[in-house]
Design a binder for these strands. Structure first.
Length: 586
DNA sequence: GCCGTTTTCGGCCCGACTGTTTTCAGTCG
């Protein structure tokens, strides 16, 4: 993650949260390679994580407020302030001067940690990936104390295959792989339970590797079978209780085997996040308890571990949902008995962003209605693209008027289900909408979105969205940042300003459930909630089956602490209409 | 570098696996 490139000098010197976090991580890497106090290194990593998961912009925070953040004291607050305003800080500049910044890249090679990287620099003056590869080819690595032939060979392979590394997989791509592997594990004799843990269970938008957990009724060779199954490209580790492989797809899968009585402790442990677990174990420590993947222990006596709830209970806490386990305040909330009751799929009554064949969807209006009813929904909004988006056969005013009439006719035949009349109107570069008010005013809701000029500077892009919301017919801002996972970075916008403007104008913000969007992300959901703006969890479905994407949106919403009351489309239709009408009257 | 109903110093999460060793350090999750 931390690379020298991640903090390349931006146009203006100021850095946003993610860049500040990357800079802090880079300092941690450089300090670690330099042999600094490991706890000092940890302080920088903790600060990086804290800054990276903040929903508010560091840039706008006074130093005293920074100082109040957990794990950030006066010193780090000063460095963060310097990074935020000038783009660098004295320590970072000094560390980069002392060691080639490229040296942090070497930490990404499996098997190379800070000590070995430092040893290679000392013995062979290696500070870049190229130098490392050459040394491995020449057989010079093995001469360094602590290195051998095998490690040298692995380093050579890893440097050659670097393109394939550090890849993350979309949740929607990883989930079926996990399901198939789990089915295989359950078929192994002696296997009791097989479940997925890790970031998949926490419903992160992307998954770095799969963590699978198995309990066994009796001793068996489940790890041996796991590592030798078809589809495994490389075996990274193979022990009695743990196996680790890389699949042909490049995805890493880690398998852990624990006894049945440890299931809860192991599931808790391997679900993570790492930061959550560290904080939890610290709580245990304060009570004289040791928490590990086998249970909770007082001295050598085991006092909990069969269920996850028993682990949390041992430190005086209620059960914490996996999606919340990021060390973003959930432990405090648990202690104070104010954990949110998270949104559930069954809470949703409708979907406010749906396409049909009329623009770029694949199913007819009738088919989309049937698909929605089959899934227990009470309403959907048909929101085709507007005319600017010609590649999607966007509707002009005339075609939209025809669709409005068609929906009116259809609604007259429906019982217990309603089709809302909408549009996904393009927000033009100047913030105007792509269709005239004369037709927009006939709609139940106007969903607005950006589909071009993603590259505007922050001020202009933000203004563009604010102006769009100033239109009295505007209801809902769709996929607000426009990001596509692995393909397109989020637009540079001041999201907090956008959300506040939405509140003032009586508008709403979408959480788009398409697996490559998941936009808003979790921390942005938290921010919307804090600002009192309802989030609409929609699918943007382009076919009936895509309505099922909503489960990914619900996962992201749960990660954002959203409850039923925080979500617009949990409202029954009679509750929804006044909310939409209010936006239309502004 | 941070932090404190065991406070201003002395702590800071825990275990499996690997490779290079000959009892263990380093890495990883």
């Amino acid at each position: 993650m931390p690379t020298a490139n991640a903090v390349a000098p931006p146009r203006r010197q100021a850095l946003v949260n993610a860049q500040i976090a990357a800079a802090l991580d880079e300092m941690a890497d450089l300090l670690e390679i330099g042999g600094a106090n490991p706890f000092r290194v940890r302080a920088y990593r903790n600060a990086a994580r804290t800054v990276g998961s903040l929903s508010a912009s560091v840039h706008a925070m006074p130093e005293a407020e920074l100082d109040d953040l957990p794990g950030i004291g006066a010193d780090l607050a000063g460095k963060i302030r310097q990074l935020a305003t000038t783009g660098t800080c004295d320590l970072l500049a000094q560390l980069r001067k002392e060691a080639s910044p490229a040296i942090t890249e070497l930490l990404k090679i499996p098997g190379l940690g800070p000590h070995r990287v430092a040893a290679l620099r000392k013995a062979l003056d290696i500070t870049t990936m190229d130098q490392l590869q050459r040394a491995a080819k020449d057989g010079r690595i093995r001469s360094v104390r602590g290195f051998g032939e095998k490690l040298e060979k692995e380093i050579l392979q890893a440097t050659a295959a670097r393109v394939d590394q550090a890849r993350r997989f979309k949740l929607a791509d990883a989930a079926p792989v996990a399901d198939a592997l789990l089915a295989g594990l359950r078929a192994v004799p002696g296997v009791d339970q097989a479940v997925a843990a890790g970031s998949l269970r926490r419903r992160r938008d992307t998954v770095g590797d799969l963590d699978l957990l198995v309990t066994v009724r009796h001793d068996n060779d489940v790890v041996a079978q796991f590592v030798s199954q078809p589809g495994v490209r490389q075996v990274l580790a193979h022990g009695h209780t743990r196996g680790s492989v890389i699949l042909d797809s490049g995805m890493q899968v880690d398998l852990r085997v624990v006894p049945r009585e440890s299931f809860g402790a192991a599931l808790q442990y391997f679900t993570g996040s790492k930061a959550h677990n560290i904080a939890l174990r610290r709580l245990g420590q304060e009570r004289g308890l040791k928490i590990n993947e086998y249970g909770v222990f007082r001295d050598s006596q085991r006092i909990a571990g069969a269920t996850e709830a028993s682990v949390y209970r041992s430190v005086g806490l209620p059960y914490i949902e996996p999606e919340l386990r990021e060390d973003r305040g959930e432990l405090d909330a648990a202690r104070e008995r104010r954990l949110p009751r998270l949104l559930e799929l069954a809470d949703l009554r409708g979907d406010l962003h749906v396409h049909t064949k009329e623009s770029d969807g694949r199913d007819t209006l009738q088919r989309m209605v049937e698909a929605a009813r089959e899934r227990g929904l009470k309403y959907i909004a048909i929101t085709e693209h507007s005319k600017r988006l010609t590649v999607a056969r966007g509707l002009d005013a005339k075609r939209l008027a025809q669709q409005i009439d068609e929906i009116d006719r259809l609604n007259a035949t429906l019982d217990g289900f309603t089709v809302l009349k909408g549009i996904e109107v393009d927000i033009l570069e100047d913030g105007k909408l792509d269709l005239p008010d004369t037709v927009l005013r006939r709609l139940d809701l106007v969903v607005g979105a950006i589909h071009h000029r993603f590259d505007l500077p922050r001020d202009k892009q933000t203004e563009r969205l604010l102006r769009a919301m100033d239109n009295k017919h505007f209801s809902l801002l769709a996929h607000p940042t426009g990001r596509l996972i692995d393909q397109r970075a989020p637009c540079d916008i001041d999201l907090q300003r956008v959300v506040r403007h939405a509140r003032e104008r009586g508008c709403f913000i979408e959480l788009n459930s398409q697996p490559d969007r998941l936009d808003l992300i979790d921390t942005a959901c938290q921010m919307a909630k804090a600002e009192g703006v309802l989030v609409s969890v929609d699918t943007d479905a382009h076919s009936g089956p895509e309505l099922d994407f909503v489960r990914f949106g619900v996962g992201q919403a749960r990660r954002g602490w959203l409850q039923k009351a925080d979500v617009l489309n949990t409202r029954e239709l009679h509750e929804l209409r006044p909310l939409l009408a209010r936006t239309m009257q502004v």
